[in-house]
Structures are given as C-alpha cells and as structure tokens.
C-alpha cells in the first residue's frame, strides 16, 4: 500500500526583518505519524508550524496539506498554540475556550449552537476537564489550561493536529494524559505534529522526528534517525547538555 503524504513543505524560507529563521525547508510528513519537531531555541520550530498554517507568510516556498494549499484545507487541521501565547486573564470559561475550536467549521458570522456545545463538552470529558467547564480560565492550573487547549483541538475533529510545546509547564500526570490522547489520535489514523523540547522522551512518545535548526537536519522514523549523529548536527557539540536538562 502506498503511503499517503499528509503535509508537504517545499523550499520554505521564512525571514523576520530580512533575517532568515527558516531556510529552504523541504519536508514530507506521511499520514498517520506522531511526529516531534526538535531543535535548539531559535531553531524556527514554532515558525515552521505557523508558516504551514499560514499565520506567518514565507518569503519563498510552498506548503500543501493533502496536495492542496492550506487555505483550502483549513477544516482538516487543528492547532494548539503555545500556552504562553494567549492572555489567560481573558474573561471567559474553559467551555467557551473549547467552543472556539468549533468556530472554523461554522465560518464567519454563524454562531455556535447546541451541537457545538455538545461536542465541546465531550472534548472536555475526554481530557478530564468536564468538572471545570464553567471555571474562569485564569483559575486553572498550567496543566489544566493545556488540557483545555487540547480539548479545543479535539473538538475541531481534524485529520492533522499541530501542537506547539504542549508539555511546557505541565505536571507529570497531565503530560501522560496528553501523550495518551495523542497516541489515540495516531491510532485513529490522524497525523500529529508536535514541537517538543524534552529529547529524552522522544523515542518513548513519538514514531517520527524532524531535526531542525534553521535548516532541516533530518526527518524520518525515530528508530532510524534519532541518533547521536543527528543530535550533534542539530545541537552542536553540546547536545549532551541538552539531553541532561
């Protein structure tokens, strides 16, 4: 059976103020993998996700999701930004944040109704946050906030999930809960792309990995390419320090 390509990135170059942060990235991500993007700080990991999702305009190159441009495939894609990228003092509840995941399919102007609410409640249940549905989001712990973000992505019921550092600042229980849900998604044939920091857990959590440091260093199955050679190329000679963090 031929492998389907979920995401294809061709010659992608992104620059901030004329300084390239991603340089000539070629990447093909097959359907149904749980992939980590690893690399040092400033390697452009978040930028790569954001430019795939059209949040940042690249200066060169193209991206396709199942062979079509992202703008035509929005409904197939769910996105979990970094937890720190939003203001958690915003006046809203956990349920309301999860409901935002349904907005994409609704499109402009149309409002969410009972169907969307039911889906949001189910997603909260899945991440174990149903008891907190009416809590103001600033009153949630860091791990709970991350679960709410995950629920918001689940409610999008997408084929591809992008997550920017979902394990940042969460407790061990939440980390396990999240990775279990991600593994379930993979089992259901979804493609999951995660910006990840903790190199030690890569072999345990993921089956696919991309090494990134402004340029793409390597991409492929964890068992084939997660080795000292690629780690050194990505992190420089100090990669062992990164592992010990």
């Amino acid at each position: 059976m031929e492998e389907k390509i979920a995401i294809r990135v061709d010659d992608l170059t992104v620059a901030y103020n004329y300084k390239p942060v991603l340089w000539d990235i070629d990447l093909t991500i097959p359907e149904g993998v749980l992939m980590a993007i690893v690399g040092p700080n400033g390697a452009g990991k978040s930028t790569l996700i954001k430019s795939i999702l059209g949040i940042i305009d690249p200066i060169a190159g193209s991206v396709s999701i199942y062979d079509k441009p992202y703008v035509k495939q929005r409904k197939l894609v769910a996105y979990v930004p970094q937890k720190g990228s939003v203001d958690w003092d915003f006046p809203t509840t956990a349920l309301d944040v999860v409901m935002m995941g349904t907005y994409g399919k609704l499109g402009w102007i149309k409002r969410p109704g009972q169907k969307e609410k039911k889906a949001a409640l189910e997603a909260l249940e899945k991440v174990g946050m149903l008891p907190f549905k009416n809590r103001q989001i600033s009153q949630l712990s860091g791990g709970q906030q991350q679960r709410v973000f995950l629920a918001r992505a689940l409610v999008q019921n997408a084929a591809i999930y992008f997550m920017d550092e979902p394990f940042q600042g969460v407790d061990a229980t939440t980390e396990i809960a999240i990775i279990n849900i991600l593994k379930e998604l993979r089992k259901a044939g979804k493609t999951v792309v995660v910006v990840h920091h903790d190199l030690q857990t890569v072999p345990e959590y993921f089956d696919w990995v991309t090494f990134l440091n402004v340029k793409k260093i390597a991409t492929g199955p964890v068992k084939d390419i997660f080795n000292d050679d690629n780690l050194t190329k990505t992190y420089g000679i100090n990669y062992k320090v990164a592992v010990n963090q």
């Binding site: 954001k50 949040i55 703008v71 930004p81 990228s85 939003v86 907005y103 402009w108 409002r111």
Partner: peptide, 22 residues
C-alpha cells in the same frame, strides 16, 4: 452581534483565529 465570535477568538488567540480563517 454579527462578528462577536470572530472578535472574541481573535482577541483571545490571534494565532488560532488566523489558522481558522478569521
């Protein structure tokens, strides 16, 4: 009234708003 949901999501989370097409 027409754009309440769009204003809310783009104010709370501009990244998601952009990814969703708003």
């Amino acid at each position: 009234i027409a754009f309440f949901k769009e204003l809310k999501v783009s104010t709370f989370d501009a990244g998601l708003s952009s990814a969703l097409g708003f």
